[in-house]
Design a protein around this nucleic acid. Structure first.
Lengths: 211, 211
DNA sequence: CGTTATACATACAACCATGAATGAATGGTG
DNA sequence: CACCATTCATTCATGGTTGTATGTATAACG
């Protein structure tokens, strides 16, 4: 028993990543061994060490794989809301939240990133990934807010900097809290309302306006 | 060299917890050894095993110690804003955020809880602590919101449930994001504005009103 | 003032995960 | 068809951490 088709090899790679998702999710990053991951997928550690450098590399690959569906969403939204930056932001957040509820892969990976791993070494690729994701999200939001202001969809004197910070923090907080206690309420049903409420803050809040 | 005063023993206990804070914060929970904690404080593992059952027990004690200053804040606020539930909530959040910035102990512990440990086993005391802290915060917020509605400080038809969820998530998200990138902006200066913006959402948001 | 429990340091045994080294079997390639 | 690289399994050596057991000096106590 050894040596399979290239396709089969890619399949085992994905099975290993699936396995990593489940095991990381149930045991946490630090407590899972490569033995756990291999066994869950029906292989041995040899397979893992062939496809990946070490445990951190498995983690990195797992995150990278989960990134694609999210980017697809972003592109789909960009196409559908071309000239309305505020609607763009709205749809982006709603689909982001809904996707995190519906897609079990995304859900697990986000839950792992929020609650089942540690961010310690700033040189760690996963740490840098998160930092960049944060900054990218901020730039995206702030850019959309500024365009919305220009189009008079938001108050002319909106403090876009503070608005961005609080808006992004809210979306993140909503997802993180729900992942921590999913049975607490139905996020899938409430996603629109919650996002709309966030946008209300931008529209009607006096505190976020300068001077 | 052995056997010191009871006071000295209490002092070493606190020094070990200080040490735990710094080491957990710099290396993360899973990567820190009891040897690390002991050495940082100038003791050996024997001292740690005398004062605590194991590493989880150290962690638990560390959290427990950091809890007190936060509760003092809550009490101080309760005294100062007796008949204005909305102002109560406002002061509570502002002082909570400011304390997290000013008090280095609180800051480290929160950073550890957010980014440098894993929440896996629901039976783990620390996991349960967090769950209960979450639920307590929600009840506190919702209670204050309901009282504010009764006092006509907030719209009569406010959906307090959703309002609570989004409000608490925002405050948590703000703190977490700032801890992740503290140099991103000055939270201490902006705390009031951010909290006021959250309260604006409750006041002026149409989406959070029922029907 | 003698005894005992305390507050640590030191020493020891056991386990477990890692990473590399090796093996084996087959698919791809000329 | 022969050879080599691929894909995984198996084995081995190693180190590092844990928990406990033991040692010890002294503060607390009667």
């Amino acid at each position: 028993m050894a040596k399979v088709t290239k396709e089969e090899a890619m399949l085992t790679r994905h099975r290993l990543l699936d396995s990593a998702e489940t095991v990381f999710h149930s045991k946490g990053f630090s407590r899972t061994t490569l033995e756990d991951i291999a066994q869950e997928a029906g292989f041995t550690r040899g397979a893992v060490y062939w496809h990946f450098k070490n445990k951190s590399d498995v983690f990195h690959a797992m995150c990278e794989r989960a990134r694609l569906p999210m980017e697809e969403i972003a592109e789909a939204v960009t196409d559908s809301a071309l000239n309305d930056p505020l609607e763009h932001l709205r749809l982006l957040c709603i689909s982001f939240l809904k996707k995190s509820v519906e897609d079990k892969h995304c859900q697990k990976v986000f839950d792992i990133l929020f609650h089942k791993c540690e961010f310690v070494d700033p040189a760690d690729p996963v740490y840098k990934r998160q930092q960049e994701a944060f900054k990218r999200a901020e730039k995206l939001v702030e850019n959309l807010l500024k365009r919305a202001v220009l189009k008079k969809l938001l108050p002319i004197n909106l403090d876009t900097r503070m608005a961005t910070i609080i808006f992004r923090a809210t979306i993140e907080g909503i997802l993180r809290s729900w992942l921590f206690l999913p049975q607490h309420y139905n996020l899938k049903n409430q996603a629109e309302n919650l996002v709309d409420a966030c946008i209300d803050t931008l529209r009607f809040g006096k505190t976020l306006q300068k001077k």
